[in-house]
Write a protein that binds this DNA or RNA. Structure first.
Length: 752
DNA sequence: TCGACGATCGTTTTT
DNA sequence: CGATCGTCGA
């Protein structure tokens, strides 16, 4: 195999196939290229069967990319080649071996919000109010236990931290696991710990997998938690052919259990480990690499790498100080526009932010500048109410024990089966020790035995309707009809579609469109999967949040959180919101130096995405929670040596900009550690004066200030108008003081 | 049972 | 500001 295109360190990482290897791959050091070569080398030269190779990574994005790049120049049938995420791998194992753990193969996977519902239910049953104990505290405890590889009945393991079983929360954990088990459900963390449970207690099963996977590869190793670490160790214990690849400087998921010890202690665990460092960066200019290296060198928690590059020095980093968040967004839009006009491909430009909430202002600015953009992994569409509702139905059909799904949909749309009825059913189910679904079926079959529940005739007939709906859908499943067929059936026969259509709001309209999107997602899955099942689809949608862009790739600017940017690169990068309390976030400021180090790594990740030109922006004042906050520039800006940047002030002609400056220099310096807060009322007026003129008024049918009459609400005045034509959305302030949002297209309004 | 309303909260990042 | 929870009246 030809390894000419690799440097020395990369070649070593490819050729060292036997024994434990840790590759520390700096940002832009050709990590994926190396990994792909290593896999091809194993397949082509070492004649390893694809069946014996397991490559796990943390994100679907990374798995997908690697798979595609290997498939691109390989003549093997890669069907047997396992390149997946930890979660997908474990889910697969659990479905195969479900019977060992008393699960059935069609188990449901619960995500965070479902976890929370279960926890709320448990607290409720124990009569604990959510004010006494926050469900998220319990959730955090459970997550933490699972990240540490703990499952109920686990024996102490020297690799793992102990869990405090005397903690009151441990009782909740036990209840919670019981509840999930009854529902034939597993949560994200449980996918991993479930496999640990399986391997700990059924050595013959473990051995089967150990024999199969001769070569193990772990990508994004810095993001693994202790449970995943143990899993990898168990799988590779026979051959010890384990290769982990990561970068401690890009570890940004500790809040989800990623444990930097996995990297820092690898050599302790494997005394014969080979350590290979990839330090040459092929991506960015000298300015960017050197500046980023200075910033990250402040971290204590490092193995230590010295990133360098042969690339040219390049432009200075541009730091822009803006009066406020809108000005920041406007600057980005203006600069992007100039770049595009000068011939830069919009797909070469990315805009980053710390929190998803920040995207809105920027989106507004881009839209009014008519710059096409794409928000990468913004609001995940399966988290929307209507999607969750429909998925609830589908889950129930596939896994009738899923009581959470059942209680979600039994009265959606409203069928007159309210909380009271549901409570009766739940109590009765507990009494008879059956699942909700089993009880419902019993009630329909033998109504005379459930007279004591005192259900009205209306409720009973609603229940009967609901049960037969689910039963009929189950028939589809048994007869192996297409998942999309079943979906359509449930959507319409449940009355969900009808109920939504009956609401004539633009919101309902948007929801219907989302449900349309769900059908296309199902159909796309059907087209791709070798054997399309509803269980398979549901698993896909929970484990892979990324929505496939089925539409043709357009010339768009990309927008994403910094977390979402990991592994990507762009010639032009805008990092927005580099302010104290936002980046680093106030939470990390409160919780100490380790948290700050993680934010610093995040900042480092952001910087090292840029190839040619890096912009870092911050706003003096930012609209947050209905008021303006002055936080001052991020400490990370001070950590970039002066030679590497130009610091400019973005002058706007907005009177607000001036007044802010005046306010700031008059009183407390904005750099002061106390931030000033201005009440919302004061600024609202100023905003509407200074920014009203920037809004696109041209094609709007109901521009701001128009007096209109609404069929239901009477007369009002248009406060805000966004978009034009079909897209026009307006906010109306009515006589009675009510404010309501409408889609101009649907709203029953007319000009007065 | 259910919708409307008001008060009260809190807010990072995601497999 | 926005989402969520609890209370109230129909």
């Amino acid at each position: 195999m030809n390894l000419e295109h690799l440097n020395e360190a990369q070649k070593q990482a490819v050729l060292q196939t036997e024994g434990p290897v840790m590759v520390l791959a700096g940002a832009g050091s050709g990590k994926t290229r190396t990994l792909v070569s290593r896999i091809q080398y194993l397949l082509n030269d070492k004649k390893v069967s694809p069946f014996q190779l397991l490559a796990v990574t943390f994100s679907n994005k990374a798995a997908k990319e690697m798979r595609e790049r290997i498939a691109a120049d390989s003549h093997f049938d890669l069907g047997a080649l396992q390149i997946t995420t930890f979660h997908a791998f474990c889910s697969r194992v659990l479905r195969m071996e479900a019977q060992y753990l008393g699960l059935s193969r069609n188990f449901t996977i619960y995500d965070g919000s479902e976890q929370k519902s279960v926890i709320k239910g448990i607290l409720g049953k124990r009569g604990i109010s959510q004010k006494e104990i926050h469900p998220s505290e319990v959730q955090y405890f459970i997550e933490d236990a699972k990240n540490n590889g703990h499952y109920i009945g686990a024996k102490p393991d020297p690799l793992l931290d102990e869990v405090d079983k005397d903690d009151l929360f441990y009782d909740f954990f036990v209840d919670y696991e019981g509840e999930l088990h009854k529902s034939n459900a597993v949560d994200f963390g449980g996918l991993i710990t479930g496999v640990l449970n399986l391997f700990d207690n059924f050595p013959e099963v473990l051995e089967r997998y150990q024999k199969r996977f001769k070569y193990l590869l772990v990508d994004e190793y810095q993001d693994t938690n202790r449970a995943q670490f143990k899993l990898v160790k168990m799988l590779s214990d026979k051959t010890r052919n384990i290769c982990v690849v990561g970068d401690e400087d890009q570890s940004i998921y500790s809040w989800r259990g990623a444990d930097i010890r996995n990297i820092l202690d690898f050599e302790k665990l494997y005394s014969d480990a080979n350590l290979i460092k990839l330090e040459q960066n092929y991506r960015s200019s000298k300015n960017i690499i050197e500046a980023a290296s200075h910033v990250i060198s402040r971290n204590e928690q490092r193995k230590g790498k010295e990133l360098w590059t042969d690339n040219e020095r390049g432009d200075s980093i541009q730091i822009m100080e803006c009066p406020d968040d809108k000005a920041e967004a406007n600057f980005v839009a203006k600069e992007v526009k100039e770049l595009v006009v000068s011939g830069v491909d919009p797909t070469d430009i990315a805009i980053f932010y710390r929190t998803n909430a920040q995207s809105r202002v920027v989106e507004d600015a881009l839209r009014s500048s008519k710059i096409p953009y794409r928000v990468v992994a913004g609001i995940k569409f399966y988290e929307r109410k209507e999607i969750k509702d429909m998925l609830g139905y589908l889950r129930l059909v596939v896994n009738e024990k899923d009581s959470l799904a059942l209680s979600r949909v039994i009265n959606t749309p409203a069928r007159g089966i309210g909380v009271r009825t549901l409570r009766k059913i739940e109590d009765e189910a507990v009494k008879n020790n059956v699942s909700l679904w089993e009880l419902l079926e019993e009630m329909i079959n033998k109504p005379e035995e459930y007279k004591h529940l005192k259900l009205s005739a209306k409720v009973k007939s609603s229940l009967a309707g609901f049960v037969s709906l689910i039963q009929e859908a189950k028939v589809c499943e048994v007869e192996k009809r297409l998942p999309s067929t079943m979906y359509e059936k449930v959507l319409h026969e449940s009355g969900y579609y009808e109920a939504l259509s009956a609401e004539k709001t633009y919101e309902a309209q948007a929801r219907l469109e989302n449900l349309e999107e769900l059908v296309s997602a199902i159909k796309q899955y059907e087209a791709e999967a070798e054997e399309a099942t509803m269980t398979g689809f549901l698993e896909n949608i929970t484990l892979d949040s990324s929505v496939d862009e089925s539409d043709e790739p357009e010339k768009e600017v990309s927008m994403m959180t910094i977390h979402g940017s990991k592994g990507l690169e762009y010639p032009f990068v805008f990092v927005t919101g580099a302010e104290e309390s936002l980046f680093p976030s106030y939470r990390s400021i409160e919780s100490g130096e380790e948290a700050i180090e993680e934010e610093r790594r995040l900042f480092y990740v952001a910087m090292t995405r840029a190839m040619k030109k890096l912009y870092i922006l911050f706003a003096q004042g930012r609209m947050l929670w209905g008021s303006i906050k002055f936080n001052g520039p991020s400490r990370f800006l001070d950590e970039i040596p002066e030679d590497y940047y130009k610091w400019e002030f973005y002058k706007t002609n907005s009177p607000f900009g001036k007044s802010t400056k005046k306010r700031v220099t008059n009183g407390v310096d904005y750099d002061d550690e106390f931030s000033q807060v201005q009440s919302y009322k004061e600024t609202e007026i100023v905003y509407s004066q200074s920014f009203a003129s920037t809004k696109p008024l041209a094609q709007s049918i109901y521009p701001e200030g128009t007096v209109v009459k609404h069929k239901l609400y009477g007369e009002g005045r248009v406060l805000e108008s966004k978009g034009a034509g079909k897209e026009e959305k307006i906010v109306i302030l009515f006589r009675d003081g009510a404010r309501k949002k409408f889609m101009a297209k649907f709203a029953p309004i007319e000009k007065v």
